[in-house]
């Protein structure tokens, strides 16, 4: 990067602006964290902006016991993990077959699945609801998992394809000589080689599924026992809410796993989220 001994005034203006915007980006979230520890009186009258004192941690107990938050949390967790596992499994197998195995139509099949990148989720919500009803999946968590897998597959296959292409042919030849079946070769030799891609994809797909709203809204929005956290948060919709502290606590709980993942794997998360830049354009 270019560095000169004397920095212009413009540079300092930009740096100051960077910090100002960081505050603008973070303060709403900190405010949310603060008001999750306040009661209504403090939020609206005595202390709308600052640090909460005394801490009304009972908001979290209320959220956890009164508002079905554990149920939403469990639903989100099951759906997200299910989506991750099935997507990774399907994408691994599919990309292996289309990138390294030899058969007619492999390029066409791969490109066909790649079309999934250009299908907007917003457009397909009506038919997906009908398909889910047609398979009698309504009322189960599968009604969310299968559509989530479908919308994540194209991207996962694209990423795996790039990784599989970089593996030397000799590995499979050697395995073949040694008498391993194609299944053994794949699961014991090839799959471990693409673990870095798997890690990236696990994070990416997990966050996608954890935060998904559009399909969840139409698929399980009216089924209280199956709601995921993004839907649970909307329970407090509008200005008719009376318990703001409880709402703040629910939102903090809903965001916590994503922030936890991000704080442990910040580099991988940023890579995972922006890896699309290389493929999607």
């Amino acid at each position: 990067m270019p560095t000169k001994p004397s920095k212009s005034i413009l540079h300092y203006i930009f740096v100051a602006f960077c910090w100002l915007y960081a505050a603008f980006s973070l303060y709403p979230l900190i405010w949310m964290l603060f008001y999750s520890f306040k009661n209504n009186q403090e939020i609206f009258v005595t202390n709308p902006f600052g640090f909460p004192w005394p801490l009304h941690y009972e908001n979290y107990i209320t959220a956890w016991t009164k508002y079905d938050v554990p149920l939403y949390f469990l639903n989100s967790l099951i759906v997200s993990i299910g989506t991750v596992v099935i997507t990774i499994f399907c994408a691994l197998l599919f990309s292996y077959a289309t990138s390294r195995m030899i058969w007619k139509g492999r390029h066409f099949t791969r490109l066909f699945l790649g079309l999934g990148m250009f299908i907007p989720v917003q457009a397909i919500m009506i038919p997906v609801v009908k398909v889910v009803q047609g398979f009698h999946l309504t009322g189960t968590r599968w009604s969310l998992i299968f559509p989530y897998v479908a919308i994540n597959l194209a991207f996962a296959c694209m990423v795996y394809y790039g990784f599989f292409r970089g593996i030397p042919r000799e590995l499979e030849e050697a395995a073949c000589m040694d008498g391993a079946t194609i299944y053994q070769t794949f699961f014991q030799i090839i799959e471990p080689l693409v673990r870095p891609a798997t890690v990236t994809l696990v994070i990416y797909i997990f966050l996608n599924a954890w935060n998904e709203f559009i399909l969840a809204n139409v698929l399980v929005g009216s089924i209280p026992t199956l709601k995921t956290l993004p839907l649970g948060v909307l329970f407090f919709q509008g200005e008719f809410t009376t318990d703001w502290g409880g709402m703040g606590a629910t939102m903090v709980i809903a965001s916590f796993p994503a922030i936890l993942v991000y704080s442990f794997f910040s580099e991988q998360v940023e890579n995972a989220m922006t890896i699309g830049g290389a493929v999607k354009g």
Binding site: I86, F94, T98, L115, A123, P127, I182
Partner: peptide, 26 residues
């Protein structure tokens, strides 16, 4: 590397889910 059965089994799950829940809907 051209094991027909393996290829079929490998592409089937992904293709089926994609067709049913993404492609046919559009």
């Amino acid at each position: 590397m051209g094991n027909k059965l393996a290829i079929f089994l490998f592409i089937l799950p992904a293709l089926a889910i994609f067709l049913i829940f993404d492609f046919i809907p559009i």
